[in-house]
Computed example of a mutant assay.
Amino acid sequence: MTAAEDPATAEDPMTAVVRPTPESDAELAFEGALRPKTLAEFVGQAKVRAQLQLLLDAARLQNRTPDHILLAGPPGLGKTTLAMIVAEESGRPLRISSGPAIQHAGDLAALLSSLVPGEILFIDEIHRMARSAEEMLYLAMEDFRIDIMVGKGAGATSIPLDLAPFTLIGATTRSGLLPNPLRDRFGFTAHLEFYEAEELERVLDRAAGLLALEIDSAARQEIAGRSRGTPRIANRLLRRVRDYALVHESDGLEAVQAALALYDVDELGLDRLDRAVLSVMLTRFDGGPVGLNTLAVSVGEEAETIESVVEPFLVRIGLLTRTPRGRVATGEAWRHLRIDRRTDGLFGHDL
């Protein structure tokens, strides 16, 4: 009797584990290869790279752990990659966690007490930590010590616990949500900026080499121009272009344009949701002003998604503005969507 026939060893189809295939292993290896290993390999963010290099060199010369680092900026700009580079260049182990996973002070205490001397702790989305954990982190960052409360009520006792020296690297997309006492305890704060098109072309050139994909300058420029200033998006679009070129046996600028049109990415980098938001504003609300909740209901999305995912890019490229009365589409939005305000807009809309 084979394992598949033996009820004792056969896998339950509801709980069967999907095992990696050679293809999935290759894909995971590619994801890892995309991340630069050193600051010299990292493309863009020249000022941040120079600041980090100085910080690491000074720590190495003084034979101490690097100062705590806060990496702030929009998603996809390389915060996690920079944390890995700091660990690699300082020759220290890296522990990775995230703010949403630390919802109690006990979670943080267990994490900190398990660190080895000199280890680097990376907490992604650090602004989403529980408040009790944030307060425990104050003492840990300054004095490498935490106080653990034992018991309850009048009989509660505080037991101090010494920690091994460590470096905390926090990453946040919303630094304004961090309390000032926590923000001030970071020795260095790096603000990552969106990438220029030329920098994204260099990112694409490197990724194309890893993919063994031949891509000319015009095709790189086209992808870079639609990547919203974000390397993560550029790499993702490049992979979709690779898939299209493989299936349709085509290449060059026409293949890039056809692939991105298939995935609803227009010449400015707007996707389906971006255009849906603008279209609703223009055709139903005459360009605004319109409230966030009304806009979210109109396109069938959560208000938080509109505010944190869609709006920042539309505001940055000048298609949308925020006013005290609500969101307002600009004249450029009418032109980009090719909507004639005289015939397609609604006049006299009273909010």
Rank of each mutant, 00 (worst) to 15 (best):
A4Y: 09
P7G: 08
T9D: 02
P13F: 04
S24H: 03
D25C: 10
A26W: 01
A26N: 08
E27F: 12
E31K: 13
A40E: 14
A40C: 01
F42N: 04
V43D: 04
Q45S: 09
A50L: 10
Q53W: 01
L55G: 00
D57I: 07
D57A: 15
N63W: 01
N63I: 00
T65A: 14
H68F: 03
G76P: 05
L77T: 14
L77A: 03
T80K: 08
T81Q: 03
T81N: 05
A83K: 07
A87S: 12
A87G: 04
E88G: 12
E89V: 03
I96T: 13
A105T: 15
G106A: 15
L108T: 09
L111V: 09
L115Q: 08
L115T: 08
I120F: 07
R128E: 12
M129K: 06
A130C: 04
A133Y: 02
M136Q: 14
M136E: 11
M136Y: 07
L139W: 00
R145C: 12
I146D: 10
V150Y: 01
G153W: 05
A154D: 12
P165T: 11
G170C: 06
G170Q: 05
T172H: 05
G176S: 15
L177R: 15
L178P: 03
P179Q: 12
R183F: 13
D184E: 15
R185I: 04
E193M: 10
R202E: 14
L204K: 11
L204N: 10
R206G: 01
E214K: 14
S217K: 14
I223V: 12
S227G: 05
T230K: 01
P231W: 06
R232Q: 13
A234C: 06
R240G: 11
A245S: 15
V247H: 05
V247R: 12
V256Y: 08
L260Y: 09
L260V: 07
L260H: 09
D264V: 07
V265I: 15
V265L: 04
E267P: 01
G269D: 02
V277M: 12
L282H: 08
V290L: 05
V290K: 03
N293T: 14
T294L: 04
V297W: 02
G300T: 02
E301G: 00
E311L: 11
L319G: 10
P324V: 00
R325Q: 03
G326P: 00
A333P: 07
D340F: 02
